[in-house]
Amino acid sequence: MGSHTITSRTPGVFYHRPSPDAEPYVTEGASVAEGDTVGLVEVMKTFHEVKADAAGTVAKFLVENEDEVTIGQDLVELET
């Protein structure tokens, strides 16, 4: 088992879910394929999907919902 960390490509505000009353994109323990959406980052009033750049199981979220994040910040740890 290896691990892989998904990082943010833009600065902004991180969200777990597509809209406030929707289900989260993924939860800890879920398996994701490469290209799956795992969260959103809002910047300049636009939303950008955070995509898994590897396949694996979501081990841990490294940021809270609505945390401000910077470019390159670790967002989600995957077990691969």
Binding site: P11, G12, V13, E42, V43, M44, K45, E68
Partner: peptide, 9 residues
């Protein structure tokens, strides 16, 4: 020292 918010375009 002012911090730039996500509302910056």
């Amino acid at each position: 020292e002012w911090k730039v918010t996500p509302d910056a375009n």
